[in-house]
Amino acid sequence: MAVPELAPRRTMGGIVAVWVVAAVIGIAVGLFAGDEWRAQWLAVGLGGCLVLAFAVQLWSGRSQGFTERVAASALGALVVMGVISLGFGLAAIVPG
């Protein structure tokens, strides 16, 4: 029989933390990687965000909704890095 938690921990903070790390990685890759290597480094950064999502959710110690929280972290990191990548791609196209 499972005992309900009296004061469950908040889980949104860990998810948003992975999104923030994804934004920092995306901006760093966009600024420091060359145009020909940017996609490869973004893939490596996304892999790092996936590992970070697992680590953060394992550290929280809650088993209920683990898969959903990891999926939300990873999907959010994918969207954040995709939007940042789109911005750098459009900036490369625009003459200036």
Rank of each mutant, 00 (worst) to 15 (best):
A33L: 06
C49V: 07
A22K: 04
T67A: 13
A92I: 06
V16K: 05
M12D: 08
A71L: 15
G26F: 01
L75S: 11
A17V: 09
G48D: 04
G82R: 10
V79A: 14
G14P: 00
A91I: 09
R69Y: 02
G87F: 11
Q64C: 06
V79Q: 06
R9A: 13
A92Q: 13
Q40N: 07
A55I: 10
P4A: 11
V51D: 02
I25P: 03
F32R: 08
C49F: 00
G89M: 09
V80D: 02
Q57N: 15
A77R: 02
R69I: 04
F32L: 15
L90A: 12
V94I: 14
M81L: 13
G82N: 10
V56P: 00
F88M: 11
G13N: 05
A28F: 14
I15F: 00
A77Q: 03
A43K: 05
L31I: 13
S63H: 06
G61T: 04
V56N: 03
V70Y: 01
L6T: 10
G76K: 03
R9Y: 03
L78N: 00
E5P: 03
F88S: 07
F32H: 09
L58M: 08
W19K: 03
L31E: 14
V29R: 00
L46A: 09
G34L: 05
A53S: 14
S85L: 07
A39F: 10
G48V: 05
R69H: 03
W19T: 00
V70T: 08
S85Y: 12
G45N: 04
G26D: 04
L78F: 15
G65I: 05
A77T: 05
F88L: 10
L86F: 15
M81E: 03
G45E: 01
E5F: 06
R9E: 05
W59N: 03
I27L: 15
L58F: 14
G13F: 02
V51T: 10
L90Y: 14
G45S: 10
W19C: 06
A91P: 01
A92Y: 06
V56G: 02
A77G: 06
A77E: 00
R10N: 11
R38L: 05
V79H: 05
L6F: 12
D35Q: 14
I93A: 12
L86Y: 11
I15Q: 02
R10K: 13
W37R: 08
G82K: 07
L78W: 07
G76T: 07
V94S: 09
Q64W: 07
V56L: 15
V18T: 06
V44H: 02
M81I: 09
V51K: 05
V16I: 15
A72G: 09
G34R: 11
V16L: 15
